[in-house]
């Protein structure tokens, strides 16, 4: 019998880790064959389902970093370790990590956009020999919204990783950078342009203007990768919500090269 693609598998939560006031990372006990940047459909029975990008994964777990902002995710907030979530997937294409090997990779992430790229960062953190250099340009709305602070600190200490961390609005205790991600693009080392690959993930407006900023520094469209977030019901190209032009974000995306992404109009 063909497996019903719409029926989730009940998966146990093995840990819950607060990342900010509204973001939590749930580690689920499941062995999934995931690519960096793919997403899963997460269910709470009798409440609903929503697409969540996989923020990290291992042989017997996946991590989902979830912001409690909607009907389903607000319910997830009530769950504890040992409770179960319904999981379908993984879906979508993920980042072409092999194309980044040996390159000077720049990852610009805004807010929760860091979640889908975190596993790439950790991959190159663990495997420095696979990459020439890694620059992270991470922006958050304010210091309280900073995600994965421990891991950012860990990345900052790595010799082969440069981290530029900024917040849109600082507070009294914040001594770091203040300003939009776009304003910090010029701090990146733009020598050896041909060897660069740039991954940009965040809110639509952030991706658009950050891409333009990189192109001002002669980064070619082919060198830029973005990840889209759209309303989805099915994750498998049937429900229609995520379609843009002839492209289904859930099937051909969510990761697109800029040459394609620029032609996807809502």
């Amino acid at each position: 019998m063909v497996k019903n693609p719409y029926i989730p598998t009940a998966v146990e939560i093995i840990s819950i880790r607060p990342e900010s006031e509204v973001d939590y990372t749930y580690r689920l006990a499941i062995d999934l064959d995931v690519d960096n940047g793919q997403f899963v459909e997460v269910s709470i029975p009798k409440v609903g389902e929503c697409p969540i990008s996989v923020s990290d994964f291992g042989n017997d777990y996946i991590d989902l970093t979830i912001r409690h902002v909607g009907k389903v995710t607000n319910q997830i907030a009530n769950l504890e370790v040992g409770d179960k979530l319904g999981i379908r997937g993984p879906y979508g294409n993920g980042f072409p990590i092999e194309e980044y090997q040996g390159k000077d990779l720049v990852i610009a992430a805004g807010g929760t956009g860091l979640a889908p790229v975190k596993s790439i960062i950790n991959h190159f953190y663990r495997n420095p020999e696979e990459i020439n250099s890694l620059t992270l340009l991470l922006g958050f709305r304010n210091p309280a919204n900073i995600l994965f602070a421990d891991e950012i600190a860990k990345w900052e200490e790595a010799d082969h990783i440069d981290v530029i961390l900024t917040v849109d609005e600082g507070d009294e205790e914040w001594a770091g950078n203040v300003g939009l991600v776009t304003g910090f693009v010029e701090q990146i080392n733009f020598t050896d342009l041909a060897n660069k690959e740039v991954v940009i993930v965040g809110p639509p407006i952030m991706m658009k203007f950050t891409s333009l900023e990189f192109m001002k520094h002669d980064i070619k469209e082919e060198q830029i990768w973005v990840s889209f977030e759209r309303k989805m019901s099915c994750g498998i190209g049937k429900c229609g919500h995520c379609k843009m032009d002839d492209t289904y974000i859930c099937v051909e995306g969510p990761v697109f090269n800029y040459t394609k992404a620029k032609n996807l109009v809502d």
Partner: peptide, 18 residues
């Protein structure tokens, strides 16, 4: 196009449907 909806039955909230 379609959208998913989850409901729980009013007389038994443990049971429902998508």
């Amino acid at each position: 196009c379609w959208t998913m909806q989850d409901i729980s039955y009013q007389d038994n909230e443990n049971i429902g449907e998508r």
